[in-house]
Nucleic acid binder design. Sequence first.
RNA 1: CGGGGCGUAGCGCAGUUUGGCUAGCGCGCCUGCCUUGGGAGCAGGAGGUCGGAGGUUCAAAUCCUCUCGCCCCGACCA
Length: 571
Amino acid sequence: MKWSQTLIPTLKESPSEAEIDSHKLMIRAGLIRRITAGAYAYLPLGTLVLNKVITIVREEMNRAGAIEVFLPALQHLDLLKESGRLKVFGADLITFQDRHGKETVLSPTHEEVITYIVKNEINSYKQLPITLYQIQTKFRDEMRPRFGVLRSKEFIMKDAYSFDIDEKGLNNSYQLMYDAYCRIFDRCGLDYIIAEADSGAMGGDASHEFMVPSPVGEDILILCQNCGYSANRERAESAPFSPQENPSKEKVKEIFTPGKHTIAEVSDFLKVNPMQMVKTLIYSSHDQLFAVLLRGDHEVNETRLAGVLGLDSVELANLETIERVTGAKTGFAGPVGLKMKIVADHAVAAKSNFVTGANKTDYHLLNVNPERDFKIDQVANIRYVTKGDNCPRCNHVLEISQGIEIGHVFKLGTKYSIALKAHYLDADGKEKPKIMGCYGIGVNRIIAAIIEKSHDDNGIIWPMSLAPYHIIIIPVNVKDSICMDAAKDIYDDIRAMNGIDVLFDDRDLRPGVKFKDADLIGIPIKIIIGKKYTETKEVEIKLRKSGEVSFVRMENVRQELERILKNQTKI
RNA sequence: CGGGGCGUAGCGCAGUUUGGCUAGCGCGCCUGCCUUGGGAGCAGGAGGUCGGAGGUUCAAAUCCUCUCGCCCCGACCA
């Protein structure tokens, strides 16, 4: 492609709309332009990269035996009602009424649609297993789109869905996708971490997130550098604290703490470290009340809490309920004398002589001890991991970092197949629900993640596999016909090479501008034809990543390129 | 959705507090000259509903009311 014939609008200055490097560079390098909040146009260069990612994804999905389909972006609201996810997505759904008044939704995801199809078209165990996938735009009315294509209202996702006759089949399908994901991200040149994840709104029981560690990532990642344990914030647990040996249990003392109802206020007032305090949260689930005890500096993980109690959801009790069951204003709840089930975090069970609410307005208790002063009904890991926690597997200190979620695999089980009645007949003629898995990849996010991890002050540094063009040819002076003819010859020669995309910067601009642009748009290999060519018939080949330079004669250009392409790690 | 900020040429911004010449600057763009190895120089030029609507005033980018859009922090989130 000749630069003069395509559209690559590079910018010298960073646009004010962008905060993070990948976003700035995607705009400056002319990959994207914002059309409205959370929706971006892909310009020619961006489209080339997008298609490279999609090609890799498609090749690996096909290799793993998945079958491509293409589902509509429009969906009838009833399908989401039937699966119960209308509420789950809530205001994130982009809905409208068609001219007949029918409620229609721009699909945020396609579990229901695919299940509907498979329910109708696949009825026998003989047709299973099957994994179907598509590459489609999804629509979610994000409360706050940000960071360019990292969080947008409209984004491209590869979503795959597996259907099996039993658990064993699901495990096999899951593993196939898991392995395919590794190959995809490897080919994209991404360094990623596979974290254990909670299945969240998707439902189901096993899940992994593929994360690219990055300070701009919006997901929290818990890592153990020692044994490799990694999990997302919802899922991660920590090693229980060992209780103090033979603690001398002091006498309980009631203390006047007027108007001090937060941990911070009480801690400040009594000059007690929050670690030495225990907070009591009254929770409810389907009208059942229970108390949750946490160390003052810890935070409850409601997902884990519901999980360990075997409940589908839990929620904090309302103010009136709290005041009724504790007999005190909120902020003074405590476990002593409380008449309900008490669930305590490991960290609380290991403590002695702590400070907690007295169930009496404006009073707290000092030196409270479990067993002696109150009974814990259940001890469990029900909080978020915090700094200083240790690995649940090897007890090494855990690291808390951030990551960009680029892929997610779930074992769904029968959640949707039961809700939407997607059954099959087994060999005995018995009707059973299909066992499902679902697998997503954020296509646009891969691009942002790569740029986030692979750029310098001059611009993007593409890996060979995603580069919009592998090679850029730069004649230093387009008016010098000797150089220009040589450049054209090289261009024609490279265009004849298989699988190589080449950009010819034929613009009549000063060389500095062209070098800066080439660096900005991140082309891995530059071929520069300048003064040296007229003198020695040598052209310069320069690598974007390493800066490595070599001079080669015209007739050896092709050979040198082949050598470089073989040795891709340097590029 | 709560809090904060911004909207002036394609991009980045000044001017708004205290209303007053023909609305400015840098980059980019067009023409010519010159130049050709890391975002050159000179000369000339095009480009503006000052986000929109209404109001106050002799006079509004500037003051008032309403409205639309965008960004940041928080909450939210496969």
